[in-house]
Design a protein around this nucleic acid. Structure first.
Lengths: 208, 208, 208, 208
DNA sequence: AATGAATGAGGGTTCATTCAT
DNA sequence: GATGAATGAACCCTCATTCAT
């Protein structure tokens, strides 16, 4: 349970990578369908079309599957953010925030069940989310964004501001995305989140 | 796992209520110490100084224990909010929000482990948080607060605004409260949250 | 694996004791039939007419079953020795040794397979055989016997002599008893063992 | 498990022999360190710097590894005995016995853990110890020794006497050698064993 | 109502063995 | 021959739940 997010052996061959991918995919499906408690390694293996032994060849235990999934998700969000920031050319910080929120919301709308479960079931693992490389990358990228727009920003403590922005964004996106408690259309939520963030950062009038 | 969060029988006698209280208290302790996966009914019963049979007298299954705990927590937060709102007499909405955030942060600082677990481990149960009476009460109370200050508020859709405010508040309070990822002192976080919320609602300048 | 020979709970009720007895009996049978590797807790439970859970109610793990069996065996041997010494009234030490050897050989002839397995499979457990109360009792009883006959005995170091006598006796009895390698009838072996022991203890020329 | 202690193919090439040797050496180390239950073919292969497949090239299954180790040990003991008998030129049988006991004790003191495990974990395999060529060789050599000294010996049945001598010797040497239950220094034990054996074989009064 | 011994399905994990490369 | 990834049967143990007392 300690520090198991590392695969037992780094897969180098294409085959290994495909295997790992299949296993993670299966884990995601099972997790989304049945939740943490309902997920078991034998089922994952079966769904992945692989033997249990193979699962344990690459993942030291059940929890590491979820940790890997979480990391993969974070990496995807990181990539989505980078790509959104690269392709958008807005005038101000608000535009950048809007691009990120839009990209992330879109990403979460694809497999909401999985994201819900990922978000919620992950905390079993002792690895704090912030520890993960991709999570750190996301944090640092947003912090850089704020730095680059420091003149537009009211709060002094950029670490605090990044932390606040990140948590607010994530929690609202998740809440907006998770099935039963998502009473508002994505577009509306998107605008509200951006309004909130820029209201906090820039202290200007927003309009949701 | 489906829809059994209701106690089998509503305890009327004082003894029963004490029993239920002891069981919930034990559940909270065990949950805080060992997480969902490490929590089991036999241990809860033992810690409560009660037999397993008695646990099943009042709770149909393991998950209902956590559901009840969650409900209790929500009720406590509801009460804390009401009391904060009643004793505070601020000039504007921002002051009310500050009172709520302060009260909730204080409440969460008492038993952060339990709250973390409650927050994170709860989603197993399919009952969406909004379903719970106390959660609904909280939602409605905040909505009423916004209504009472409609003139100060920029967003039109009060349902949406309530939803946004509630989720942002909760997620930041939890993040600020959970041990490893809580890098900022409560006081600072408190101010930041209030700045964010009033920035969103009132669109005026805030200072974190 | 540390110090698990203690039952989880001391059985007080008659029913518990019967259960424990049934489990040990089943363990003995399975162990004798299939050896350590072939013995598994589910099979033991089934043979005992009990659920696996019940096995684990009284024994913390598989190895503790074997440890308990070993202890039981040692206790039986202790009792057999005491009874043999009590009912025999020989003139000399040799006669006492003969009584012990006779009693033990007889006991081992009843369930040779079990004894073989007990003898051989036990060392997995880290508890050295000498640690066990019954084993200690046996050692001390023989040592007392030697003390009482010190005048007949050549070796000076009674601890050493006891140790030698005990190991020689046990190993020859086991060898004589285990099926395939037991080429000599018990009676003959019995006489040989006694000859050997008294040759060692009483033989004029030996110098230990 | 039945009768597969024979290597699949007798290694003729030097390379093969080195491989087999490396595998056996690794088996010995692993067995000594972790006991039978903790020994597994994959680990043995790794320790031997060889692939599992290669292990199975020369050994049909796990147990055959231990059987081979046992045989190797027996062969070493046989050789040690021959060499001890060859280099010693005592006056009487007692001297020869002393030479053997001394040589064996010395050999066992080198790697006591391995010998303990070899002795104790071997019985899984159904091959009775007597079946093994080296064991037979040892038996026959001792028998011949007794024959050569028949005039000094009291017992009539030389087969029985050999059997008794061998078992008594072995068990005491092992007991003296195994760590926790070895309370007496080797030298003292050596003398005691010799005293016992010559007391049995040569003692006037004994009658087997 | 309370007890807690008993149940037994289920799950995580290991490891002897195989076989395609 | 050698490799080692893949297999999957098997096993130890847990724990939610029941029910006789």
């Amino acid at each position: 349970m300690q520090d198991l997010p590392q695969p037992r052996r780094v897969p180098r061959q294409a085959r290994s990578r495909a295997l790992v991918e299949a296993i993670l995919e299966a884990t995601a499906r099972v997790l989304a369908e049945r939740g943490y408690a309902g997920t078991n390694t034998n089922l994952v293996a079966e769904r992945a079309g692989v033997s249990v032994g193979s699962v344990y060849q690459y993942f030291p235990n059940k929890d590491s599957l979820i940790a890997a999934l979480h990391e993969r998700h974070a990496a995807q969000m990181h990539a989505a953010m980078e790509s959104a920031l690269a392709s958008a050319h807005p005038r101000d910080l608000r535009g950048y925030l809007a691009a990120i929120v839009h990209a992330w919301l879109a990403a979460h709308l694809i497999e909401p069940e999985l994201h819900r479960v990922l978000e919620k079931e992950f905390p079993f693992l002792d690895a704090p989310a912030e520890q993960s490389p991709a999570d750190q990358g996301i944090f640092l990228r947003i912090r850089r964004l704020l730095e680059e727009h420091r003149r537009e920003i009211v709060p002094d403590d950029l670490d605090l501001a990044t932390w606040v922005v990140l948590h607010a964004m994530e929690s609202l996106i998740h809440a907006a995305t998770v099935a039963p408690s998502a009473p508002h259309p994505a577009q509306v939520v998107e605008r509200a989140i951006v309004a909130m963030l820029s209201g906090y950062l820039c202290g200007e009038r927003s309009r949701a």
